[in-house]
Write a protein that binds this DNA or RNA. Structure first.
Ligand SMILES: [Zn+2]
Ligand SMILES: [Zn+2]
Ligand SMILES: [Zn+2]
Ligand SMILES: [Zn+2]
Lengths: 433, 433
DNA sequence: TAAAGAGGTCACCAGGTCAC
DNA sequence: GTGACCTGGTGACCTCTTTA
């Protein structure tokens, strides 16, 4: 079990954001003009520790903007009965530091150390001026400060821990997990070869004669067995994530299946597959399997194949690392929650770990990589969405191919009440074999 | 292996702009020559008799700070119509901030004997000097704080204070703390010499014959006794840190053990150990002990030894100072907390103190050093993580080596509910011997 | 003649005001 | 309710004067 960051705030200062928003508007030369009230721009101050706006000074023991200063004062003298808007108590941790939740803004003020007895007025001492200057130059030059670095150390451990845990999934030998996997896959594919029956033909023939004219059902069966085993592994990984034990069992299961896109994502990213001359090539463990486009087209149809091809092309172009896949998946599972504040902390740690991973891997260009990943994820989700629509449209066909209720839930758009279906059928995942 | 933080971190285009406009306008260097008044640290002065801030001198017949001095003057020349804010005339007695009630501040000034006719100008006479000295030593003997640092910057006070407190750990003579320590260590090592039984052999033999064939259990016992005593010292240090008394007891204990990595870190960094020709050399107090690689390999195994060697090599290469170890440890214990805002303030102070320490020790290049330190911390944590996995795997062996539950908690990955175990077993740490 | 404080200076902030 | 802008203190640093 990873040590917990209980009740701790990980603040990752988004310096790029900072630079663009905070300092552009400032006119350095203007600072030298003699003081006449409010014109003096305190450009030698670090930004508002509460909202990241340019600070107007040191108020109640913290560098804050005029707005946060007066907000804090009014909070002290009048309103203390704030309640968080969305109940998560995390409204301030977003990138933009814009508050629409008074409760969280006030909490942030307090946690930054604002308080009546920390008031400091009068001229700055040399010491304080130097502190400000140091802080500022750390931010401006993007040099790592100590709090950053301490968080980095934690982030590294999170990465090591998750990577180790995730490797049980990525390094699994599926042939050992599933009896006769290769043989069954191979023979199922063999049985599909040369078949040119469409979905409709297939269903009609089964309906009328009771005979399955090719191997598509065997193929669906064995591949779904594999898929299910994969989900089992991912579920275990998810549970072992920091924060993964905060939720009660049932809630966690429901959350886990709430976004099956990401399960599909993690699985899809962990297998090798590509198209080569109208031949779909995929690898399980170290075995390669081939399926021809023609058969797949009859097996499924052109629409699905085009999704498949696009995904496969973009996937191979982007070439996600194991860690990237892992973090994208983990961040989808471990999300801030109103009821379970530790989930929020865990989410921040994972976030930071991911950022740190990207930073160390891609250097200062990591934003670009992150953008590419995000684009790809949303592209992938879009395709999965269409795939779901397609499956829904072909629900009858799906029923011919599998009896497993969980798989149907997994592949078809969720209907109201799906949570109960999942829970009813979950033991298949929870208790393997 | 983890990727390490690279040196390429400065990227902002704005930096030149801002950085070039250092606060030269305030001219640090220039002030020092013509004027001696403020640079001289008045370390022989008792604190301000009105507000307890560092005094700047003897003003109007009393040792006061600059602020109280000028407040008194202005009160004389202008405002005498102060009225106590809450009518109780006791506002200065509490820790309330002094701006709250001018009336009480002025009354305090008067009651401390401030007056125009008590003005003393010019060089100190011998009596006045002695007077100050006596007052000071009285304060020192009453309070364990460091009043002679009163006029230093807060960062320095924090550093000196922590250093003094930490030295109780680093300068401890363990031979005095633990009865017959050296003898027991020495004889335990002697008993392991020449033994080539593996972990499994050892367990089997104990199991079957009840005989412990070598000294490994004695060695484990005495070294864990030492370890526990070290933890006791570190716990006391942690409690004495600024902010260390903010948390309720139980929460603090749990937080303290939440990151046993950092406890191990602090301890490991405070001992001398290295490898020399397949000989593991470690020092306790001023005594050297040797263990041969072969025996250690049987005692533990190759995996653990390789961690040990890597750690020892990098540790000795980096050569952390006592202060660095101390701050890394302290910053892990004293962390910002939304629930306890004073922890956040304490964390800021420690940060500042650490920054300041690095700056004065390594100059403007201190970021490089900081980066090295954090990379090492990450590396160390990673190894500890693997060590924990190893211990978990060899839990049965550990059970043969120690009965102490706390030690087991300390060495094995934490399981859910560990907090209760820690609390149940903590009195061993809290009440030594 | 160097050390030390009184008084001056002006950067600095809490709280108030007012237009939105 | 918010936040830009004043007003009336405040206090760090300086200059000038006094004194051991
Ligand atoms: Zn703000
Ligand atoms: Zn909120
Ligand atoms: Zn004072
Ligand atoms: Zn009063």
């Amino acid at each position: 079990m990873l040590p917990e960051l209980s009740d701790v705030e990980c603040k990752s200062e988004k310096s790029s954001h900072l630079l663009s928003q905070t300092w552009d508007s400032y006119d350095m030369e203007a600072t030298i003009t003699p003081y006449t009230g409010f014109e003096v721009l305190k450009s030698t101050l670090p930004p508002c520790q509460v909202c990241r706006a340019p600070a107007s000074g040191y108020h109640y023991g913290t560098n804050t903007c005029e707005a946060c200063k007066v907000f804090f004062r009014r909070s002290l003298t009048k309103h203390t009965d704030y309640r968080c808007k969305n109940g998560r108590n995390q409204c301030m941790s977003s990138d933009d530091y814009i508050f629409n939740c008074k409760s969280c803004r006030f909490k942030k003020c307090v946690s930054e150390g604002m308080s009546r007895d920390r008031i400091k007025i009068g001229r700055y001492s040399r010491e304080r001026r130097r502190e400000n200057f140091n802080k500022l130059s750390e931010i401006i030059s993007n040099k790592p400060s100590i709090p950053h670095m301490m968080n980095f150390a934690d982030a590294d451990i999170v990465t090591v821990y998750c990577r180790e845990s995730f490797s049980k999934f990525t390094d699994a030998t599926w042939g050992k997990e599933i009896h006769n996997l290769y043989e069954r896959l191979y023979s199922a594919i063999l049985e599909t070869q040369g078949s040119s029956w469409s979905k409709e033909d297939f269903m009609d023939i089964v309906e009328v004669t009771g005979v399955e004219i090719d191997g598509r059902r065997s193929f669906a069966e064995i591949s779904q067995k594999l898929l299910k085993r994969n989900i089992q592994f991912l579920y275990k990984f998810a549970r072992a994530l920091p924060g993964g034990k905060e939720l009660p069992n049932e809630k966690f299961v429901v959350d886990f299946f709430n976004y099956p896109e990401y399960i599909k994502f993690a699985i899809a990213m962990s297998y090798n597959f590509y198209w080569s001359n109208d031949e779909f090539v995929f690898t399980v463990d170290d075995k390669q399997f081939l399926m021809h486009k023609n058969e797949l087209e009859h097996f499924l149809d052109k629409e699905v194949l085009s999704y498949q091809m696009e995904i496969s092309e973009r996937k191979n172009k982007l070439n996600l690392t194991v860690e990237e896949t892992m973090f994208v998946f983990a961040l989808q599972i471990i999300k801030p929650s109103a009821q379970y504040p530790k989930m929020g902390v865990a989410n921040q740690r994972l976030n930071l770990a991911f950022t740190r991973y990207l930073q160390t891997t891609y250097g200062n260009d990591y934003h670009k990589r992150l953008r590419d990943i995000i684009n790809f994820v949303s592209f992938f989700n879009e395709k999965i969405y269409f795939l779901k629509k397609w499956t829904k449209k072909n629900e009858r066909y799906l029923n011919y191919l599998t009896d497993c209720k969980l798989m149907k839930l997994f592949w078809i758009e969720k209907q109201p009440g799906w949570e109960y279906d999942i829970l009813d059928n979950f033991q298949e995942i929870d208790e393997p074999q």
